[in-house]
Amino acid sequence: MPRIVDHEERRGQIADAVERLIAAESLDSVTVARTAEEAGISVGLVQHYFASKDEMLLESFRRVRNRIEARVAARRQRSERAGARIERMLLDGVAELMPLDPARRSEGRVTLAFTARTFGNPGLAEVLRSSNANLRAQIEQALRNALACGELPEPVGYELEAARLLAFVDGLVLHCHTGQRPLSARAAHAMVAAELARLLPGPCDRSR
């Protein structure tokens, strides 16, 4: 009996091949032929699922950002169940954006390559805009919760503060990936931890 093809799985297989090529080489190295070779399928099959290279790139970037957002959300949920401080919850969440292990380092390299292409590419730009908006919303809600439980001593401009924190992390990530010594990924993580400790110094009382 012939195997039933899962079309979403096949699209994912192709998008993953695009991501591997970018991580190992560069975004310019991605072609339909190279992607087919990397995915272990025919050029015709790639073209069946994606009409152009731009469509492949868009799908790959969307999947990368969705994966990051899902990990951040999962971290938050685990921390909430464990009753962790919101300071810790935020640190664990933004750590998913940082090159703290080979997988996240590779993912960050791919994200930066795509980010550079958002100029003049509305599709890629929208993926990044939407993803960052989601991450900022998660940070903003965490800050509101921190005020409610006492970790945040007084109200702040939540939307602006969330944007500032995400921009701070993004800047550190860029420096890590471009080899701006002496900033290592671990040092960058420690800097984020120090900033969150400064912002959220209060005791956490969830009974409030």
Rank of each mutant, 00 (worst) to 15 (best):
T31E: 11
S26C: 12
Q47I: 07
A24R: 15
E37Y: 04
S60E: 06
E59I: 06
K53Y: 10
F50G: 01
E25S: 13
E38W: 00
A39P: 00
L58N: 01
L45P: 00
T35W: 01
G40P: 03
L45C: 04
L57K: 08
M56K: 05
T31I: 14
Y49V: 06
L58C: 03
E25P: 06
S60T: 04
A36H: 05
S60Q: 08
I41M: 05
E37G: 02
R34W: 05
L57N: 07
A39R: 01
R34H: 13
H48W: 08
S52H: 09
A39M: 10
Y49A: 06
L27K: 07
S60W: 06
S26E: 10
E38H: 05
E25H: 14
A39H: 01
A23W: 04
A39G: 10
D54L: 12
R34V: 08
S52V: 14
A51Q: 14
E38S: 11
E38L: 06
T35G: 04
A39K: 00
L27A: 14
S29G: 13
Y49S: 10
I22S: 01
T35K: 00
L57T: 11
A24Y: 11
I22K: 05
L27D: 04
V30W: 03
D28A: 15
A36N: 06
Q47H: 11
V46L: 01
E55R: 15
R34D: 08
G44L: 05
L27P: 00
Q47N: 10
Y49G: 02
Q47C: 08
S60R: 03
A24I: 11
T31V: 12
K53V: 12
E59D: 15
I41S: 01
K53D: 10
E55P: 08
V46P: 01
E38N: 06
G40N: 13
A23D: 10
Y49H: 15
T31W: 11
G44W: 03
L45K: 00
L58I: 08
Y49C: 05
A33W: 06
E37M: 10
Y49R: 05
D28R: 12
H48D: 08
V32Y: 02
A51L: 11
L27G: 15
V32R: 06
A36K: 02
L57S: 09
A36M: 04
V46S: 00
S26W: 11
S42M: 05
S42K: 04
F50W: 04
E37C: 02
T35H: 02
V46K: 00
E25A: 15
